[in-house]
Design a protein around this nucleic acid. Sequence first.
DNA 1: ATTAATTTTTAGATTTGTCTAAATATCATA
DNA 2: TATGATATTTAGACAAATCTAAAAATTAAT
Lengths: 219, 219
Amino acid sequence: MTHSEENYIKAIYHLSGGGMHSVPTNAIASQMETQPSSVTDMIKKLSDKEYVLYKKYRGVHLSEKGINTALAIIRKHRLWEVFLAEKLDFNWDEVHDVAEQLEHIKSEKLIDKLDEFLGFPKYDPHGDPIPGKNGELAQRSLKLLSAMRPDEEGICVGVKDSSVSFLKFLDKHNIALGDHIKILDVEEFDESLNIQIESKQLHISKRIATNLFIKPKLV
Amino acid sequence: MTHSEENYIKAIYHLSGGGMHSVPTNAIASQMETQPSSVTDMIKKLSDKEYVLYKKYRGVHLSEKGINTALAIIRKHRLWEVFLAEKLDFNWDEVHDVAEQLEHIKSEKLIDKLDEFLGFPKYDPHGDPIPGKNGELAQRSLKLLSAMRPDEEGICVGVKDSSVSFLKFLDKHNIALGDHIKILDVEEFDESLNIQIESKQLHISKRIATNLFIKPKLV
DNA sequence: ATTAATTTTTAGATTTGTCTAAATATCATA
DNA sequence: TATGATATTTAGACAAATCTAAAAATTAAT
Ligand SMILES: [Mn+2]
Ligand SMILES: [Mn+2]
Ligand SMILES: [Mn+2]
Ligand SMILES: [Mn+2]
């Protein structure tokens, strides 16, 4: 597999909800910032190699082989993100770009030893689950903060948007994964929320709340 | 710089004795296992970009810029080798191939943080010096084991040949970097050596002795 | 059910890095 | 110094990954 093929497989995986549904050519093109014609070319190659099922004009669907390949790449990506954050003190908004390069290094031994070195982490610095050696994905029951009602409580365990700007925003307001969050009240006017996070109170917009994953406290 | 350009620069650096002398096209071709015509093509590109000085039929010479680029790649290569050996328990015969991939990752912050994480090592697992951030190379006065005379002593600090087969041979005979070595005597017939290494005695061929670097004991 | 808008594919070109075969320059040797 | 051997470059081709422009299929709107 070339770097380019791997990047396409990964993009299709994300766009298809983990291989659940099929993905239109243009969606891949805009995700990857290439031309639709380039996508068509690559899809044909991936189809020949049986990573995807492809019917002209009907979009593309990941095969079992394609899903497993995607999971292997995502496993590498997220383990490297953990390494960068935990061992090299990278901030969580800095890890992604470097991991985009590191995910293409080919060595099974390397990634398994890295996994061990990191203590077999289950989640990356953004709270996304790390696929296991055989593609197993940890499942958690989590909610978006925006879906919670007053008096509900939980732990902040992940971000939906992991753009640099959002992550920096969270840093600025001292919101971090692992923080305890309680909804105080929700403004009817704009659905903004007053929350208690750890010891301090905070007012946040709906936009923010739709991008934070919470593991609700079991009552 | 592309991966391929980086690999050429590195090969030229090694073949030219660190940029000291010029390198013939065919030497590069055989080192890189490509055709001489491919080398000519690449040399032209590197010359346009001013990494090398090139006169048709006269071989190629690294520029200052080329030397610095080579040192930066070698720094990355050797730091990754240390990481693999020290942190992930790779054997010293396994680190090179993976480092060949890792050396192309582009992130200054990554390599500086890695350097710090490793405790600013000065030598890689084969005893080769690791260039500093600004290209400084540690210099040691060392000798080949084959150049030593009976009763001379020293510490084994590096290998000249770092092929997998040689490294495995050393493992098998319990020869490791850091070992104390004393020459007992040299056979006149084939220049093989009887040595004392740490506590045990060993008979080794001239071929072996020409591939071990020793830091002589100051008398 | 036509027609118009959108999406997708095809055709043909470009760049990068490689190759083979042929031409040319340099080197070694008589 | 002429000649043959060796080293190097040129010419032309190819595969991979991309692009633009044009054609074709699908979808949406009248
Ligand atoms: Mn990421
Ligand atoms: Mn992540
Ligand atoms: Mn190496
Ligand atoms: Mn080394």
